[in-house]
């Protein structure tokens, strides 16, 4: 059973690694003791009840939490062995390699074309932009729907299309990792299925981490699943999240080690 754990693979298979990470908002401890290895070219899902820190952990991987003034991270996060939070690491560079997709589709108030071209332009891409836009849109399986209206506003698309536009936009920067923060929770079931199919295609070239509230979604797409739970802190009145269990999706859903995991995946709480 042990060999299902990704950390037993060769070192190159691990793209992102968190080691003993505690996360704080101001003096409030939000997440504790997270240690996890994210395997390359796999989809890893984070599941768990609300407020257990799944998104916080996700956003730590590309240093997006830096934008929150009161946020602090204790512990180590590495990307291919390189400390992400080392003083000589440029967070801008980190975010180029580790892209992120949000819960609500957030196209820029620009044309469809410029939405895609924005990332490559700011990172100094000097190649055939038309081609890059087309490949990115094709990879996001959106090309056929928008090829005739590239100059139109990104807002003219439906919610599901907007989310795929955001995926295309992220891909255009050619990251290695895609972080997805509940990418389908604002979408209808058909758009959700399209995104899931897309994820399965993308995972051949990318490493994907997805936070989801939808357990069926985790079983449908994820190779590995991490179950986060929250625990009431004595006295402080708040909750602190932690990574309860991590392993192959199959095992987490069918034969979890912990009782709490079992309760959650069978729908007994959360």
């Amino acid at each position: 059973m042990v060999d299902t754990m990704p950390m037993t693979g060769t070192a190159t298979d691990v793209v992102l690694r968190a080691k003993d990470c505690d996360m704080y908002y101001g003096s409030l401890k939000a997440v504790r003791d997270v240690s996890i290895d994210i395997p390359k070219n796999k989809i890893t899902a984070f599941i768990g009840p609300s407020g257990c820190g799944k998104s916080t952990v996700l956003r730590c991987f590309n240093r997006l939490n830096d934008l929150i003034e009161s946020f602090r991270l204790k512990g180590q996060m590495t990307y291919h062995g390189q400390d992400l939070y080392a003083s000589d690491v440029d967070p801008v560079e980190v975010r180029r390699r580790i892209g992120i997709l949000f819960q609500k589709p957030n196209p820029f108030p620009k044309s469809i074309y410029d939405n895609i071209a924005y990332g490559p332009r700011i990172s100094g891409f000097k190649g055939d932009m038309d081609e890059l836009v087309e490949t990115s849109l094709r990879r996001a399986v959106l090309w056929d729907e928008v090829k005739d209206k590239l100059p139109e506003s990104g807002f003219s698309l439906s919610g599901g299309q907007q989310q795929r536009l955001c995926i295309a936009r992220t891909i255009a920067v050619q990251p290695e990792v895609l972080l997805m923060d509940e990418p389908c929770s604002a979408l209808d079931p058909i758009s959700t299925l399209k995104i899931e199919e897309l994820m399965k295609e993308l995972v051949q070239n990318y490493t994907i981490i997805i936070v989801t509230h939808n357990m069926e979604q985790a079983t449908r797409v994820a190779d590995y699943t991490g179950f986060y739970n929250a625990q009431v802190v004595e006295g402080a009145g708040g909750k602190v999240g932690y990574l309860a269990e991590f392993g192959e999706t199959q095992k987490i859903f069918n034969d979890p080690t912990l009782e709490e995991t079992k309760d959650y995946v069978t729908g007994r709480f959360g």
């Binding site: 934008l67 801008v92 560079e93 975010r95 957030n106 700011i122 990172s123």
Partner: peptide
Amino acid sequence: LRQGSYGLGA
């Protein structure tokens, strides 16, 4: 919008 842009490495 802000997060989206930062998230792309801006």
